[in-house]
Nucleic acid binder design. Structure first.
Lengths: 245, 245
DNA sequence: GAGTAATTATTGTATAGATATTATTTTCAC
DNA sequence: GTGAAAATAATATCTATACAATAATTACTC
């Protein structure tokens, strides 16, 4: 019952081909820039049809591990863009996973007229928004203060949502489909508001996450979250393949 | 020459099918949990073979937008895991993109005996390592200090690499295949070393990125990077599909 | 030799079917 | 009714083939 990398061969042929090619690349046997066998060769090696090989290779190409071109053949991709999958914490789950009691308190809830939003240095024309400021607590001690704007042009339902018990974040996730999100992560010193709300001394390092979410070209919501630096961090993982992380 | 979302229909049929299904999901017309048309229905609707439909749908399933089961059919996936693609900055490119001159200076370069590494709170048995401490500069002013361990059992070549001109990060990216990476991001106050190296006052908020990279079960390298909080931030983007960000 | 045209190798897309797998639904026995 | 067995509907995989698109190579011309 070791917890090593699973040695089990995938049940289906195209998955097996993919796994074996992938393994050779990850082991370093086939290095970036190396030419891979052609589909015809693999087809002979595995005794299967070209479509099956193609499915395996197309899938590897989709994950960016290999790069394919007509006539030129297939090569192991150059070291990929240095990017990772960042798990934006579900604060509640995160807190509860540590065995603490999660708490949430809205501090402010108001409608804001259009154009009074200047987050992210951009002065976009954003319509009327519902603004909710809240703190999230672990064992009654505040760890995160969140300023959230929800733009009512894009999310009219938000005008009537009840944010006394449920924070706007989970509500939005469950109700609103979105197409694009952007997060900015920075280290800042606690400002006056954060100092008060998080009960830390002025200047304490905090993790700032500014999150903006779109549907198409329309901004749905902007959140500015300030985490107590000593209480939270983010982790990002990257395994080159979605499967074999 | 607007920069809007491209309205162009993908040239190939399966891409078009995928795009249209995707659009209906993203627009909210098909909501999470909704049943999608069967392959046979789509095949009739588009007047194509089932394999073509299958390719489109399999691709959507691979990105997690839909969930498919034999006999049960295809449904729009539940609101996806809240994760994003984090672009770990290539520091050099980042600095140069701002029009500044990039600089790099190694401060320390030594071999460290096994077992003297305790980063990340774990006391793993890690073999002999090459340790390089360096600063990265923008217009001669330091913005990042990096402590890097490279474990020679896993990366023997690193013993002979020349890190006077090229930082270890890029060297590793180009030379060593890896299978897994993990990043921890936190806000910390500049400690004595950071204070000195980054020329900031003690206690200044800094962004800490601890990065650990594996090949299989073997740790290749551990980097601890401290960014000047006022000089750097990370951005993460997420578009539900790799294609349609 | 330089430039151009023809050839060829390789992947991309698509079709039409066959069979396998699996979860649901229906039927049947009791 | 309840539980087991059979039928069914849906996706999953695989084959064999055809043709299209593209880029490297070769052949040919001047």
């Amino acid at each position: 019952m070791h917890d090593h990398a699973p040695d089990v061969r995938p049940a289906t042929l195209h998955a097996r081909i993919r796994a074996e090619v992938e393994a050779r690349i990850l082991s370093g046997e086939w290095k970036p820039g190396d030419r891979l066998p052609t589909e015809t060769e693999l087809m002979a090696r595995y005794g299967c049809s070209r479509m099956t090989v193609n499915k395996a290779m197309a899938s590897l190409a989709a994950t960016g591990l290999i790069s394919r071109n007509r006539r030129a053949g297939t090569v192991v991709a150059r070291p990929r863009v240095h990017s990772a999958v960042l798990n934006i914490p579900d604060i509640r789950a995160d807190i509860e996973a540590r065995g603490a009691v999660y708490g949430y308190r809205p501090l402010l809830d108001e409608l804001r007229p259009p154009c009074c939003v200047h987050l992210g240095a951009e002065g976009h024309h954003l319509g009327q928004s519902r603004f909710v400021r809240s703190v999230h607590l672990a064992d009654d001690s505040p760890v995160l203060i969140e300023d959230r704007h929800i733009f009512l042009d894009a999310v009219p339902d938000a005008a009537f949502a009840d944010f006394h018990g449920e924070p706007p974040g989970p509500w939005l996730l469950g109700h609103v489909p979105w197409t694009k999100a952007e997060h900015r992560i920075a280290a800042i010193a606690a400002d006056a508001m954060a100092t008060r709300a998080l009960k830390v001394s002025s200047g304490t390092p905090c993790l700032l996450v500014e999150r903006r979410t779109w549907r198409g070209e329309e901004t749905l919501t902007i959140a500015r979250q300030v985490f107590r630096g000593d209480a939270f961090d983010l982790t990002a993982r990257f395994g080159p393949t979605p499967s074999g992380g």
